[in-house]
Write a protein that binds this DNA or RNA. Structure first.
Lengths: 350, 350
DNA sequence: ATGAAAGCGCTAACAA
DNA sequence: TTGTTAGCGCTTTCAT
C-alpha cells in the first residue's frame, strides 16, 4: 500500500497536520521540522492521495479537453500542447472526442464537469443557447471560437486571410474562390468576413462556394465547383479540404499551381508532404493549447481576477508549391473517359 | 452545490445507505423503494462524487493512455477508439504524450498510476528492465508491443507482411527493400522477421535498409538508399515513411509505381490522400484501442481471471496506386540540376 | 509552531 | 429489506 500522511507523521515524529502543512505551506512550519517531514516523505515515496485532497478542497487537479474529432490532425496538436503544459503545472488532462456530434458535446461537458476543475472546449459546434448553458455551469475556455464574453483562445483569422489575399494578388490573381467549411463553425464565418474585407481592399473578386465538410472528401467535392467558377486561385477552409481540391484537380487534369493556385489553412503535417506542398496559413496549434490551459488555470486559481478579452494568436502564411502566378481561367472542357482512366486508380482510393 | 447522497436520501425518505444500494446494487432493494430513490436522484440531478467513492473503493474510475507522439496520426485513432469505449463503460481517460522520450515514459507511468485504475501503453519504447518494473507496479495493457506475459494488443504483423510480399511477388517483383523503423520498436523487429520468412517462401530477395526515424523525413532520407539498392519495390515501416519515399522519388525523377512500387503500413488517413494513393497494410487502430480497454477493464474488475495471450488483430492489405507490375531496376543516373530544379519548389517545403 | 479533531461524500460492515 | 456507523486520506479550523 502507498504511504499516507499518517505514515509520514509517524516516521517524522510529528502530527499529521504538521505533515500536511510542511508539504503544502512550508513557511508555516519551523525549518528543522519541515526538513524532517520532507525527508520522511521522500523516503516513504509519499504522494498525497488526490481523491482525498479533492474531497476536502473541492478541486480535482484535473482538466478536460473536448474536441470534435481526434482523427482530424488539427486537434492532436492542440491536445499535445495543452496536455504537456497542464502536466508541468500539476494537472492531468482527460480527453474526449465528440465525433462531430453537438449533442454528444453537451453530454460530454456535463459528464466531464464533475471530474475536472475546468474544460478546454475546442472548435465547439454548440448552438448559442447550448453553449450559454454550458458556460454557466462549468469553468470553460473556448479554443477557435469566440462567444459573448467567454474566455477564448482564437487565431488571427483576419490577418491570415489578409496575408493569403495579398500573396495571391501579388501573383496576379484577380478572381479567388473561397471554399466554405461547416456552417456551424465560428472560424468559417470569421474567415469569410475577413476575406470579403481583404479582397475588397486588394481589388480581387471573391467567389464563395460551399458549405462543405471540413475534410479531404469535402475538398474533393468542392473542386469541381471551383473549376467551374473560373477562379484562378482558391482558399480552402482548412488544409484537408485544400488537399482534396489538389487531388481532384489532378484527376481532372488540371495542374497545380499552373492552372489553379490553392491555399489551405492550419499547416497540418500533411500539407508539407503533398506534392506540390501546400501553401497554407499556419496556425500555432500547440501554442493555442498552452494558452488555453493558462487561461483556464487562471480562471480556476484566481476566479476573481478579471480576464480581459485577448486578440487572436498570430498566424503565418507559408508559401509553398501550390501557389503560383495567375494563369488563364482553369475552365476546362468536360473530362472525357481517356482523361479519367489515366488516373482511375487514384480514384479507387477514396 | 451539487446534490449528495444525503439530499437524495432525504428527498426519498430513506437512509443514505439505501440510496447508495438502490443506485449501485438495485437487486438488493425493494422495487418500490428503488424507484423512489431513482426518481429523487434524477430530480436532484444527483451524480455520485467520484473522489469520495474512490476514497473508499480504492478505485478512481479513470484510465490513462500513454503514447509516443500525438502528432503521429497512428495514435489518435487508437486514442479515439479507447476513449469512446472506456466512456461507454463509465471510465474517463487521461492522455499523456511522451514526446518520444523513454525517460518521460517512465515518469508518466509513475505519475499517472496514482490517478488511474489502469494504463494503456502504446508502442512503448521502454527497455526491458524499465518495462518490467513498470508492469510490476501498475495495471498495464500494452498496445503494439509484446513483452513477456504482459497483456497486450498487437497486430498480425506476420500476416500483413505475407500479404504485402504475396502482392508484390504477384506483380513480378523479385527484389524488395525493407525500410526499417526505430531499432527500439518491437513491431519493427517483428516485421523484419516476418518479412524474412515471407520473402523466403515467395522466392523474393529481401534488402533491409535502415534504421530510420518513423517519419516522413525518415522516408525521404531512406529513399535514396532504396533507389541505390536496385530493388523494384519497397515496404516501409509505416505510411509516413512510405510517403516520404514517394515524395523523394518524385524529386529524383522516378515514377511511382512505374519505376518503384511502394507499400506502407498503418493506413493513416493521409495514405489515401496522396497521389498516387498508397498501397498499405491497414491496421485496425480504433479496434485496438477498444480491445486494449476491454483487456484493461477485465484486469481491473476481475484481477483473478486468467488472461491468456491473444494473437494479433487481423490486418488487411489495401492495394492502391503506389504498387504496380515490376519494372526494370530503378537504378538511375545521378540527378542533374535540370531534373532537380523542376521540382525545386517541392523541396522547399521540407 | 504544533496538535487535536471535525468532516468532505461515499461505501461496506454490521445491526435490526 | 433497511438503517446505523465507521472510516477511506486529506485539509483546515480551533486550541494550545
Amino acid at each position: 500500500m502507498a504511504a499516507t500522511v499518517r505514515d509520514v507523521a509517524q516516521a517524522a515524529g510529528v502530527s499529521i497536520s504538521t505533515v500536511s502543512r510542511a508539504l503544502a505551506m512550508p513557511h508555516m512550519v519551523k525549518a528543522e521540522t519541515r526538513d524532517r517531514v520532507r525527508q520522511a516523505a521522500e523516503q516513504l515515496a509519499y504522494t498525497p492521495n488526490r481523491a482525498a485532497r479533492g474531497l476536502i478542497t473541492g478541486r480535482t487537479g484535473n482538466l478536460g479537453i473536448i474536441l470534435p474529432d481526434l482523427t482530424n490532425p488539427f486537434f492532436p496538436s492542440i491536445v499535445k500542447g495543452a496536455q504537456a503544459w497542464a502536466r508541468d503545472r500539476g494537472y492531468s488532462v482527460f480527453i474526449a472526442d465528440t465525433d462531430e456530434d453537438p449533442a454528444a458535446e453537451v453530454g460530454l461537458v456535463r459528464a466531464l464537469s464533475k471530474e475536472v476543475d475546468g474544460i478546454v472546449l475546442c472548435s465547439s459546434r454548440l448552438s448559442a443557447p447550448d453553449l450559454r448553458s454550458v458556460l454557466a455551469q462549468t469553468c470553460v475556455v473556448l479554443v477557435n471560437r469566440k462567444f459573448e464574453s467567454a474566455p477564448a483562445v482564437t487565431f488571427d483569422n483576419a490577418g491570415g486571410m489578409r496575408q493569403a489575399v495579398a500573396h495571391l494578388a501579388a501573383l496576379g490573381h484577380r478572381r479567388v474562390a473561397w471554399l466554405a467549411g461547416p456552417r456551424t463553425s465560428w472560424s468559417n464565418r470569421e474567415r469569410i468576413r475577413a476575406l470579403r474585407a481583404a479582397t475588397g481592399t486588394a481589388g480581387v473578386e471573391l467567389v464563395a462556394i460551399g458549405n462543405f465538410p471540413p475534410s479531404f472528401d469535402g475538398g474533393v467535392a468542392a473542386a469541381d465547383q471551383v473549376i467551374a467558377s473560373a477562379a484562378t486561385a482558391a482558399i480552402a477552409y482548412n488544409d484537408l479540404m485544400a488537399l482534396g481540391v489538389v487531388s481532384r484537380c489532378a484527376v481532372r487534369g488540371l495542374r497545380i499551381p499552373g492552372d489553379l493556385s490553392v491555399v489551405g489553412i492550419d499547416d497540418i503535417a500533411m500539407s508539407g508532404m503533398s506534392s506540390p506542398a501546400l501553401t497554407t496559413v499556419a496556425l500555432p496549434k500547440e501554442q493555442a493549447g498552452r494558452a488555453a490551459v493558462d487561461l483556464l488555470l487562471n480562471l480556476i486559481e484566481r476566479p476573481d481576477a478579471v480576464t480581459r478579452p485577448r486578440r487572436g494568436l498570430p498566424v503565418q502564411l507559408l508559401v509553398r508549391g501550390s501557389t503560383g502566378v495567375a494563369a488563364n481561367s482553369p475552365h476546362v472542357p468536360a473530362p472525357d473517359l481517356t482523361t479519367w482512366s489515366r488516373e482511375g486508380e487514384r480514384h479507387a482510393s477514396q
